Simulated assay, not measured.
Amino acid sequence: MGLFSRDPDSGDDDDAASDGLRFWEERGFVAATIVVGAVLVCLLVWFFARGDSDTPTSQPSQTQPSNVVPTEQPTEEPSVPPATPTEVPTSTGTTRPTTPPPLNSTTGGCRNKTPDMKLPTTAPPAVTWQFEGNILIPLQVAGGPATTAQSGVRSCFAHSPTGAVLATMVLLGQVINPDMTEDVLLARVLPGPGRNRALNEFRHPTTPQAAGQVQFAGFKILAYESNFAIIQIAAQVNNRDYAALPVTMRWNKGDWKADLKEDGTFNGTVAPDVLASLDSYVGFRGA
Rank of each mutant, 00 (worst) to 15 (best):
S105I: 06
A123F: 04
L40T: 14
P193M: 02
Q213T: 11
E132Y: 06
L199K: 02
A142W: 06
L222P: 14
D116E: 02
W46E: 13
E76R: 13
T206M: 05
A142C: 07
T95G: 11
V39G: 15
I135A: 06
Q130S: 14
S280I: 05
T92C: 09
Y224Q: 06
F23E: 03
L260G: 01
A234T: 04
L166E: 14
G163W: 00
L171I: 03
E25H: 07
S160V: 01
R27D: 01
K220T: 07
T98M: 06
H159R: 06
K118V: 15
N252C: 12
A211E: 11
K261M: 06
S91K: 08
V69S: 10
G28N: 09
A83V: 14
W251T: 09
T33K: 14
E182V: 13
A287V: 09
F228N: 08
N267L: 12
K118N: 15
F4R: 12
F284D: 01
G283V: 02
A167W: 00
A164N: 06
P70Q: 01
G20H: 12
S151V: 11
V127H: 05
I230A: 05
L245P: 00
P205W: 02
T162F: 08
S160A: 01
P97R: 11
G93N: 06
P205V: 04
L185P: 07
D263M: 03
F219C: 04
N239K: 09
R96N: 12
Q62C: 11
N196F: 13
G152F: 09
P60S: 02
G286S: 07
N227G: 03
L278K: 04
V69I: 07
G11Q: 15
C110Y: 02
S91Y: 09
A287R: 10
A217V: 05
C110M: 07
N252Y: 09
F131R: 10
F47R: 10
N227P: 15
V274Y: 10
P115C: 00
F47N: 10
T86H: 10
V45W: 08
R6P: 15
Q130H: 14
G28P: 11
N67G: 13
A217D: 05
E225P: 08
M117C: 12
P102T: 05
Q73S: 09
H204L: 04
C156P: 05
K257R: 04
V127K: 02
M1G: 13
D183H: 11
G173A: 03
E77M: 12
P191S: 02
V184G: 00
G144F: 01
P120Q: 00
N134P: 10
W24I: 13
R22L: 06
T106N: 13
V247D: 03
D13Q: 15
A49E: 12
G192C: 04
A149P: 08
A126S: 10
I231A: 02
V247C: 00
A83C: 13
D279P: 12
Y224T: 07
L21F: 07
M117R: 12
G28L: 05
